[in-house]
Design a protein around this nucleic acid. Structure first.
Lengths: 242, 242
DNA sequence: CAGACATTAATTGTCTGACATATGAAAATC
DNA sequence: GATTTTCATATGTCAGACAATTAATGTCTG
């Protein structure tokens, strides 16, 4: 692991990259302990502060964890699906909010991915998944729900749908797409009538899943997508200024 | 933005979180300049080193960029699809390598997502996409290619397929799934015979896309998935120890 | 001997102050 | 007016110190 002091990049960035490469290449395996900060500063011939900045960069990516005390130090972290998913959601949310992606485009991507799960979910879904979805339906039927709460339940419903495909890799990949949509969905004002319609469409999805009917699931998702897009369309027409 | 000195979390982690929250909430917009490190250390009542560690954490997530000099400082970064995609690929790759995810599971997720693009690609694909895919086919036909190079071309082919759906949100989401598979694919030894077969299946996909035939694209992808899974199956049988 | 308690050593977390380096803007000079 | 110099400001790096945490070790006591 070599460092170039004349590189345009910060020393701490170079050191972080060197350690990251070692992890990706498998030279540092999970739970392996890195040399202490003092040892690293000797190896790289930089100050301890610089090493620490490098380690903080890696910690921000959940690549390492640190522990104080006698047997402490920095350890290669096992990246869990949970951690990765949380990072993915944050990144996706910011990506959408910072790049004025059209609602149409984001929505299209989301439903395209969800449809991909639908077929698998039909063969794999268990009763617990259906119960989770039905619980969310019950929640969405409450009149006094705020728009935000309605959207949050909507996200939970779709997360359950994705999870019912019983493939954690798929769930992880789709979490970003589904959850990152929430801020955009929150912009929609759901009237009582639109809520009833969405509830009905959600019900169709659950029914189709219950009967393990892939094409019915696909059709219900298509309808829901069209309706969501139409609601967003109305929003743009109603508020052309903002 | 408040900091709790008695919290179990590091001060630098708390400060990073506070600034991150401000960015996500839109209180700090793109290209906004953060207070200088000295000002931040006064505001949070911590030392400059602690502030710097917090800023490095944010920089590691591409949330800010820093610039030296008189008018320099830390600025809120516009997260580009390119940045987000690179981060997603790194995370996904590590996630798969650290959690002994089965080839079957990862492969299944990948093809499920690709199928989702297929329908859209049929209506949206442009000739440039087809040309890119055909170029990769030509590449894959070369006998002297190493297994690694063959896999790399395979990834490029599938990336082109995903991109031909012309939805950047979709491309971003799928890049992780497709590219993270490469290390797993690299474990497969591609015989001359299996290469010919894969080449043929890839050809079928391109043909179906050219004719804008969604069900034909889907069928070719199904065949390719089955064949890939079968190759992996052979690998496990042939090398049960490793 | 067993358990409670104190000591110690190792390690990260934080602070302080200094200097190096980069860079735009203002001032001085031609 | 154009060019050069100076300067102020900001991040990048370094060095050294102390605080806080924690496991291992040593010590005392019953």
């Amino acid at each position: 692991m070599k460092i170039d002091p004349s590189s345009p990049k910060d020393l701490s960035a170079q050191i972080a990259q060197a350690i990251r490469d070692a992890i990706v290449a498998g030279k540092l395996i999970v739970d392996a302990r890195l040399p202490s900060e003092t040892e690293l500063s000797d190896q790289f011939n930089v100050s301890r502060s610089t090493v620490r900045e490098a380690l903080k960069r890696l910690a921000a990516q959940s690549l390492i964890r640190t522990q104080r005390g006698a047997t402490g130090g920095a350890f290669v972290n096992r990246l869990t699906f949970e951690d990765a998913q949380a990072m993915h959601v944050t990144t996706s949310t910011l990506l959408l909010s910072m790049n004025d992606v059209s609602f149409t485009q984001a929505c299209e991507a989301r439903y395209a991915l969800e449809r991909a799960c639908a077929v698998m979910a039909c063969t794999r879904r268990e009763s617990s998944h259906l119960e989770k979805m039905k619980a969310e339906l019950g929640h969405q039927a409450q009149d006094e729900l705020s728009d935000e709460a309605f959207c949050a339940s909507d996200v939970a419903f779709h997360r359950a749908l994705v999870d019912s495909a019983s493939n954690p890799v798929l769930s992880y990949q789709l979490a970003g797409a589904v959850e990152a949509m929430q801020p955009l969905m929150n912009m929609i004002t759901f009237t009582a009538r639109s809520r009833v319609k969405i509830l009905m469409l959600h019900g169709n999805i659950v029914d189709a899943l219950e009967q393990r009917d892939p094409s019915a699931v696909k059709d219900s998702l298509d309808l829901l997508e069209s309706y969501t897009q139409a609601l967003a369309e109305d929003l743009i027409v109603a508020r052309p200024s903002g």
